[in-house]
Every structure is written in structure tokens, then in C-alpha cells.
Simulated assay, not measured.
Amino acid sequence: MRPDNHIIIMWGSKGGAGTSVTAAAAALHETKQVLVVDLDGDTAPILGIERSRNRLGSNDWLADRNVEPARLTELIDDVDDTTRVLPAGMARDIRYADPHRVEQLAGWISEQPGIVIVDAGTGPPPQALIDIADRNIMVTRADYLALTNPEITAARPDEIVLVNEPGRAITKRDIELTMKAPVNTVIDLDPVVARSVDAGMFLGNRGLQRATSDLINPNITPDRLREPEIDYGMRWTSNTTDGSFRISYNPGTHQLTATNNVTHSTQTLGRYDDIASVDRALEGWADKHNDGGGLDWLEEQVGVDAPDFDGPSDLAGVPTAHAAPSPPPPTRELGISLA
């Protein structure tokens, strides 16, 4: 029986989302044997495999119906001791390839040992690849045009990797609600990574290791995925309390909290079994979190007195009408499972 993370399909919500860099970084962080299948044309060059008109790859194989799937093995290049890559060769959009050949490719991928990371390019991949995937992952930025594309919103990835850019108005919670999938990995955009790709120095770059450090932990399997923290906004204010606050819910600890944006002190507003319970308690929050008395409204909704957010945590024992939560799941760092 294959391991839970045997086949990981990655695809981008839009060109330039960061799929190829994410796939390459995940492969390099992995300590076990991993094969990267490049169907888009960029992952292999990022991993140091030089582009050449004479270098054949997966897309060339897809275009030649007379070549058996077993011959794909001959096209694989070694990157390092644990990483191999099947280049794309002639770049083509996998979604327009011969469906029968895509099914054959999917069958070949399923037979490969170790972990297989497939860079499927932009847009939802063919169903044959989705069918074999243990993890179907969309890579995106908080891009309004990408996330309002009907083809993208109709897709059903298992999870999302968010490449986080400063200054974006769309939040992680917005993306989760739109895509109906959790954002299980957030990678902060780091210009060091872009510069290393441009200079052909992606391999071994220390800036890359720092920027993508949250990708690593190969021992985590999908049944232990950490649910993402849910953000209810940064700008909650009160008529009786100075400052502004961030409200968030952590599904792991089941706590709804308010964090002072200046002092970073955190106060517990209650414990809830799940996000649905919080959504019910905070129904209408989107119209309140920018109001001057938004925090006062929230405190009334959850049934607590206005706390002293600048002082010690005086809400830790506040009872709620909700049932006691089950013990939180094991904590972990994000890993090759990209969750």
C-alpha cells in the first residue's frame, strides 16, 4: 500500500502564482526519494535542468502516441541524492493533451516509488491526474482576477498554498470561503527567491531555505492536517477600549481570541467546537468589524464583559454556552505534505 503522500498534484490559479517554485522547493526540502514530474516547463529549469531543443520530456511523450509509458523513465534526470525530475520538454498545456495519453501518464505516475510531485501548470488539471492524486493542491496569490475566474472557483482542490504578498485586500478566509478548501500553507513572498531563480542559483540558496521553511515535515500525513486559523479581521475597535484588535479562531485549540494590534497581548473570547459555531455566534460580523463599536458588538454576541485588553489575560476562564471541545490535534510544522 502506497504512503498517504505518494502523489501530490500542484496547479496554479493563474500564471505566475508560484506553482513551479513551490513544487521545486517542496522537492528539495523532502528527505525521502521524490520524483518531480514537470508538465508546465518551468520546474525542471528551476531545479537546474537546462532547457534545450534536444531535451525530450513528458510533453514530447504525450504528443507521440507510439511511445510506451515505460520509456518515460529514460527521460528522468537526477537533481541530487534524493530528487529526480522528469522535464516537460516541449512546453504544452496538459489540459489540451490527448486524454488517452494523459490516462497512460497517470498510470505510470501511480507506479512510481517514493513521493511524486506533479507540476500540472495553470488551471485545474485533467481528471485523470486528479483521480490518482493523494493531494490535489492549488497554489495561488490573493489575486482577485484569479479567484473570480469561474473555472477556478468551480474547481475543488483538497487544499490551498497561499503565496502571501503584502498589501493585498483579499484575506486567507476570503480565499477559503471562495474555494471551499482550507489554506493549509502560507509562504511569504520573498524577493530573495525570485532573484535566485533569475540568477539560476535556486539550488542550495539559503534565502530559499528560510522563505520556504514551513514546507518541511515529511512525517505528517493528511489525516493529521492542521486546520488553518480563521481571521475575522484586523480593525475591530471599541467605544470603551483604546486601540484596534485582530479577531481570530484557531480550530486546533478551539479558541476565539482578540489580539491587540499594538501590544500583541491576546485575550480569549470563548471556546467553540468548530468554525460553524463561531460563524453562528458572529453572524453579521462583516458589517460590524469596521465600526467604532464593533468590538463592543462582538463581546455582546459571545456573552462576555468588555475586557482590559492592555492588562493580564482575564478571560481565560470565561464560560460559554458551547460544549467543551475535544482535545486539540497534535501540533506540527507544515511539510512536504504542504498542509
Rank of each mutant, 00 (worst) to 15 (best):
D81L: 11
G123K: 13
P87Q: 00
F245A: 03
T268N: 05
E299V: 08
Q209R: 09
L129S: 05
P124W: 01
D198L: 15
A306W: 05
L334R: 10
Y144N: 15
I247L: 08
H322W: 15
G252K: 09
E229G: 10
S238C: 09
A97R: 07
N260H: 04
D4R: 14
I170T: 10
A181Q: 06
H264A: 12
P124L: 04
D310G: 12
P329Y: 02
V118Q: 09
D60I: 06
Q104E: 11
D134E: 07
L35C: 14
A23M: 04
G233P: 00
T241P: 11
P228S: 05
N136V: 05
E299A: 08
G294S: 03
D81I: 07
D274R: 15
A63S: 09
R173D: 11
G121I: 03
V79E: 11
G317M: 11
D131P: 04
I76K: 05
E30S: 09
G123L: 03
D231W: 03
Q112D: 03
G18I: 02
N184M: 10
A321E: 15
T266G: 12
T320P: 10
I220V: 03
E165I: 08
S244N: 02
S52Q: 08
D291E: 13
K288P: 00
R332Y: 07
I175C: 06
F202P: 01
N250D: 14
N59K: 02
D81E: 14
D77Y: 00
E159T: 12
N149D: 11
V193L: 14
G41P: 03
M179N: 13
K172L: 13
P157E: 01
A91K: 03
A316K: 09
N164R: 13
P319D: 11
W108P: 14
V139C: 07
D174C: 12
L269A: 03
D77V: 00
D188F: 04
D279S: 13
K172R: 15
I94K: 04
G114F: 01
F245W: 12
E333D: 14
G12K: 04
P222E: 00
D242T: 13
A316T: 07
H264V: 14
L35P: 06
P166R: 10
W61S: 07
E227D: 10
V186A: 05
I132C: 09
V262L: 02
L35N: 03
V278N: 06
P157Y: 01
T259P: 09
K32W: 02
